[in-house]
Amino acid sequence: MRNISIMIVGVGGQGTLLTSRVVGAAAVKAGYDVKMSEVHGMAQRGGSVITYVRIGKSVNSPIIEKGEADILLCFEKLEALRWVDYVKKTGTIIINDQQIDPMPVIIGKAKYPDDILEKIRGKFSGVRVIDALEVARRLGNIKVLNIVMVGLMAKSTEIEKEIWHEAIRETVKAKFVDLNLKAFDEGYQLAGGTV
């Protein structure tokens, strides 16, 4: 059983916390020991939100540090750049190709970098970029972009698709289960998986 460290980063309101819970639930079902860490409160108000999921045979620290993440799941480009330092050289980076300007950019005190994807691709080979917002929009609810991303990521873990489905059923609110399963399958297919 290989130890895997997954970081999920995004902007407050993008469903980062829920995503980490789906990933955690799937890992438990697959028989891993799991530790996850979240930050609540002020950081959630449109700020940079980051959650850690560490799975393996036995896990101590709930946090992931620089150069340790196997997978970085990014719901927003700038957040991808902010946290990319945490990824192993051989790690996988999955980026939702969406730009949300932070307040310093909005008010003209800073510039949103225009070459984020190039910068990251220049340093890492395992980079996958997807317009998950567009996929979610097509499914009828932009909020499920997070689960589209989970579907995309799921293919690169050792956890079976059925287990991911179960985890989604258990974690999201009943009335959104079908929508989220669909979102997961879309992402899973994009990664070359069959549903």
């Binding site: 902007v11 407050g12 309101g13 002020m42 950081a43 959630q44 108000r45 449109g46 700020g47 940079s48 540090e65 620089k66 150069g67 340790e68 700038l78 957040e79 750049l81 902010r82 990319v84 330092d85 990824v87 192993k88 050289k89 932070p102 307040m103 310093p104 950019v105 800073a110 510039k111 949103y112 970098p113 910068k119 990251i120 220049g122 340093k123 890492f124």
Partner: peptide
């Protein structure tokens, strides 16, 4: 601790904001 990349991290901050 090794493994750090030398990527240029000149990233604008994202402070929390009123919704």
């Amino acid at each position: 601790p090794g493994g750090k990349t030398d990527i240029n991290l000149d990233v604008p901050a994202r402070p929390p904001v009123l919704c």
